[in-house]
């Protein structure tokens, strides 16, 4: 098994119940800087809750999240994203009335980026936003980046979610089912981007149902069931794990 001592991002004994449902049950694991960590589990196993707790959208009932040795449990989402932990949402959350590239003005206007970029007039941010969109695969010279987000197809909205994370120049990106609802070819076109992010040293934590693609990227995978970790290891080991095959992979592989 993996046993890494690190003070990068540590999830420690997290628990969270909603009424009678235990969404997280003393879940703990470290995240190593620069790795791609996959999180898988059946529907309702608590993956989104985990993401929400790490990023501050939900307070855990007990347990801790530490980032670079600092306690971040219970901090509000804006503080946590300000520290460089960005996330995507399982259901895309664009700003519908704004053109796609203007969506990115919001993170670019955060104090994290403004202090790094040293102010700048508002026109300048548009150029940065367009660059970011190009990076995640919007065709730069087409009309797509200028269309209102409400008019974009789903595939672009997923990319926009990713671009919003990238705009924060994050150290960690946590994606919540980034690939779901995309066709195989769309996922295929996102793969090189994810590879690039990994090469740039961004730590990725990916909650996924698309196992084939995830297993290509991830160095390590955690399997969740009813809020607990039932298995952990490199993809090959997970595929081989008998218990995991029975409860989860049976249907998919």
């Amino acid at each position: 098994m993996f046993e890494v001592t690190t003070d990068f991002l540590v999830v420690d004994e997290l628990s969270k119940s909603f009424g009678g449902v235990k969404a997280l049950d003393r879940l703990g694991f470290p995240v190593v800087q620069g790795e791609v960590l996959g999180i898988i589990g059946l529907n309702g196993s608590g993956k989104t809750t985990l993401v929400n707790v790490i990023t501050g959208f939900i307070r855990p009932d007990s347990g801790h999240v530490r980032f670079r040795g600092k306690e971040i449990t219970g901090l509000p989402p804006e503080k946590i994203s300000g520290l460089g932990i960005a996330r995507t949402f399982q259901t895309v959350r664009p700003f519908h009335h704004l053109p796609a590239f203007k969506n990115l003005i919001v993170p670019l206007y955060s104090s994290r980026i403004r202090s790094a970029a040293g102010g700048g007039r508002w026109g300048d941010r548009d150029a940065v936003a367009l660059d970011l969109l190009e990076e995640v695969g919007f065709e730069r010279d087409s009309a797509v980046p200028y269309k209102p987000a409400a008019a974009l197809p789903h595939g672009y909205l997923r990319r926009l979610e990713l671009a919003r994370c990238l705009a924060l120049r994050p150290e960690v990106i946590i994606t919540d089912e980034l690939f779901s609802g995309l066709s195989s070819s769309e996922v295929g076109s996102l793969m090189p981007l994810m590879e690039r992010l990994r090469e740039r040293g961004i730590t990725l934590m990916m909650v996924e149902h698309r196992l084939r693609e995830l297993f290509q990227l991830a160095g390590r995978v955690i399997v969740m069931e009813q809020g607990r970790k039932i298995a952990e290891g490199p993809p090959q080991a997970i595929v081989a794990d008998k218990a995991v095959r029975e409860t989860y992979l049976g249907a998919e592989l």
Partner: peptide, 20 residues
């Protein structure tokens, strides 16, 4: 623009490191 975005989707604004 950030203000208008809050009325559209406040959670996404918070996820963008902005104190709504």
């Amino acid at each position: 623009l950030v203000m208008r975005s809050i009325s559209d989707n406040d959670q996404a604004v918070r996820a963008s490191a902005i104190n709504i």
